[in-house]
């Protein structure tokens, strides 16, 4: 099953490599990974999406917790949560394609963030399925380049992951 694990990590050199190293050492799978400092600059927030049996996920969270620089973590998929991913896509846009792409971007509530005579650069945010769907909706062969941020997530309501 797909899980989103959110980690508060000491913002120190090498801390990220320990997290990534743990996944490869123990044969766990990383689907996406995002990391950036938080409002408290001594801490980073890291979100990793992974998949595995309940037993594997339990081991992942326990092994992550053992890392000295991991301050706290939560499996967001255990409760109600919001997840977002940002995608930038360059698509071929000439002639009638231009109007069609604009329509598709509107449907996905995306934005065209850069334009020239032959290319649109589109920004789409949402959960990962939505971004996949956008790519499928754009006619085949017109996608030139895709950049995705990986998933960021946060629990709904009053639950917070902080010190």
């Amino acid at each position: 099953m797909r899980r989103i694990i959110s980690v508060l990590l000491e913002n120190e050199p090498g801390a990220l490599s320990r997290v990534v190293g743990l996944f490869s050492q123990r044969n766990y799978n990383i689907e996406t990974l995002t990391v950036a400092p938080t409002e408290d600059e001594s801490l980073s927030r890291l979100t990793v999406t992974t998949s595995g049996s309940d037993k594997v996920i339990e081991q992942i969270t326990k092994q992550l917790n053992k890392l000295i620089e991991v301050v706290k973590l939560v499996d967001l998929t255990e409760g109600a949560h919001i997840e977002r991913e940002l995608m930038l896509v360059k698509v071929k846009a000439t002639g009638s394609q231009r109007a069609e792409i604009t329509r598709t971007v509107d449907i996905f509530r995306g934005q065209v963030v850069d334009v020239n005579s032959s290319v649109y650069t589109v920004q789409v945010t949402g959960n990962s399925d939505k971004l996949d769907a956008f790519i499928r909706s754009v006619s085949e062969g017109s996608v030139l380049e895709v950049v995705r941020s990986g998933v960021s997530g946060i629990a709904r309501g009053e639950k917070v992951l902080s010190l």
Binding site: P13, G14, S17, R18, G21, Q25, I68
Partner: peptide, 14 residues
């Protein structure tokens, strides 16, 4: 050495 030792230590520090 931080990288080389990482998988076989409880912790390492520079």
């Amino acid at each position: 050495m931080m990288g080389v030792s990482r998988p076989v230590v409880k912790h390492n520090m520079a």
